[in-house]
């Protein structure tokens, strides 16, 4: 379970999050929607522990433990996974090498023994097949020269392999054509389970047709301004974010 209490965050003296509260229960898929600039991506970075952000107030509890003092790698080992909107390219490092390094680092941090190479390859191949990731892609340098869809699939592959308990999808649908969107969504849906929760950040409702959320939260000016069920997304699709902007102005 993830609980965010009164989170206040700024970057370079600019306030982005203004007392944000949010709870995501185990097994829940929560969607966060909001207009550009409402602070959605900031929220995902702050949960994952990016350094440029200054947390002025509040706490983020993962299964009751405040993770704000932890480094990004410690949070990852504790179960936080962020699927980046723009996955980074790492020249010269084969995707396989990277996956192995990440999986073993997390196993080590959790006090478990590292995977044998055959076990590792078996797991990767199984997960890759599901996401329709060809083997030669795993041999190429991580994300280097990958198409938008390939990059996103690689993110979901990592999500599957790292067995994280709290997964954030940051605008995962951006830059995806309909086929890629389907593959990625199926990959995510296959990972839904009672002990894994998701935070799906998106500007458009489109993704939520494929990954159907349990709850929907509307974010505006660094706060959750409304929460509801999946029907809220449809309402937003119909009316847009204009209502919230006006209420802000008023």
């Amino acid at each position: 379970m993830l609980e965010i209490k009164n989170l206040v965050v700024q970057i370079e003296d600019k306030r982005i999050l203004n007392g944000l509260n949010l709870t995501v229960n185990n097994g829940e898929v929560a969607a966060i929607m909001g207009p550009n600039g409402s602070g959605k991506s900031t929220l995902s970075y702050v949960i994952a522990g990016k350094e440029d952000y200054e947390v002025l107030d509040g706490e983020i509890l993962l299964d009751g433990e405040n993770i704000l003092e932890m480094g990004p790698d410690e949070r990852a080992a504790a179960g936080v996974f962020l699927a980046f909107q723009y996955p980074l390219e790492i020249p010269g490092v084969a995707s396989m090498t990277f996956l192995k390094a990440a999986m073993n680092a997390q196993l080590k941090a959790r006090g478990e023994s590292e995977l044998s190479t055959p076990d590792f390859i078996k797991r990767v191949n199984a997960a890759a097949a599901q996401l329709e990731i060809p083997k030669d892609m795993l041999k190429r340098a991580l994300n280097v020269g990958f198409s938008g869809g390939e990059k996103k699939r690689m993110e979901i592959l990592q999500m599957a392999l790292l067995r994280s308990s709290f997964c954030i999808l940051d605008e995962t649908d951006s830059g995806l054509d309909i086929d890629a969107l389907r593959i990625v969504s199926e990959g995510v849906n296959a990972l839904r389970s009672p002990d894994r929760s998701f935070l799906v950040i998106t500007h458009y409702q489109r993704l939520l047709n494929h990954i159907v959320p349990d709850t929907v939260h509307v974010m505006h000016s660094g706060r959750i301004v409304r929460s509801g069920g999946k029907e809220l997304a449809l309402e937003l699709e119909a009316n847009g974010y204009a209502d919230y902007r006006e209420s802000e102005a008023a």
Binding site: A48, D73, A76, A77, F81, F84, I90
Partner: peptide
Amino acid sequence: FYCQQRGLSDEEATALI
């Protein structure tokens, strides 16, 4: 940050890159 988010420590991430 990307490497750390996947669970690698500073030094592991540097060594990898």
